[in-house]
């Protein structure tokens, strides 16, 4: 069965202004490009990881205007004027680790490290949202981030530790 084999046109690109880890960027992207693929393949911020590419695992979690979101589920063109924070933007300008990063280290809250960037970002947001009243609450609000090495008890402990340090 033969089909028409018209050349499919190169999709149009769109100009987007987006702030990533404090750095203002102006980029030309196709409307279909996800924030995740753009971060990783276009601007080389590979700390954000692709696990499922359909919003089920949380390993691509980033902050968009302060809210945690799955970067695989957002298009870059939706981020016009937004500020995005990835794992590369957590540490201070002098390289000093964020309290959440330090707590993850102290509690051994990671193993292979692949889900860790998403866990860290999610933890920062979880603390900011005020969902650290108890271990049970942390477990619930960190359950959007899968960890197949299953460092869950250590992740929970790390979130509690960082929340205390941050006065939450």
């Amino acid at each position: 069965m033969s089909r028409d084999t018209q050349i499919r046109e190169q999709p149009k690109t769109h100009e987007v202004r987006i702030r990533v880890n404090g750095e203002e960027r102006v980029t030309e992207v196709e409307a279909r490009t996800s924030l995740l693929d753009w971060l990783r393949e276009a601007i080389g911020l590979t700390g954000t990881k692709k696990g499922c590419n359909e919003g089920a695992c949380g390993s691509c979690t980033v902050l968009v205007d302060g809210r945690r979101m799955n970067a695989c589920m957002i298009l870059v063109v939706q981020c016009e004027g937004s500020a995005v924070t990835t794992v590369e933007g957590l540490a201070g300008p002098d390289g000093e680790l964020h309290p959440v990063q330090r707590a993850f280290s102290a509690c051994d809250a990671y193993q292979c490290g692949y889900c860790t960037p998403g866990q860290l970002i999610s933890a920062v947001a979880c603390i900011e949202e005020g969902h650290t009243g108890s271990e049970e609450e942390v477990r619930e609000w960190m359950s959007g981030n899968l960890c197949r090495c299953s460092a869950y008890p250590q992740i929970t402990a790390a979130v509690m530790m960082a929340a205390e340090e941050l006065g939450r």
């Binding site: 080389g44 692709k50 680790l97 990671y110």
Partner: peptide, 20 residues
């Protein structure tokens, strides 16, 4: 404490698909 921790905690650890 894990010596590779700083790489994994800052996004600097390069997994195979982080190369291009």
């Amino acid at each position: 404490t894990r010596i590779e921790g700083p790489l994994k905690l800052t996004g600097a650890a390069r997994y195979s698909m982080d190369n291009l």
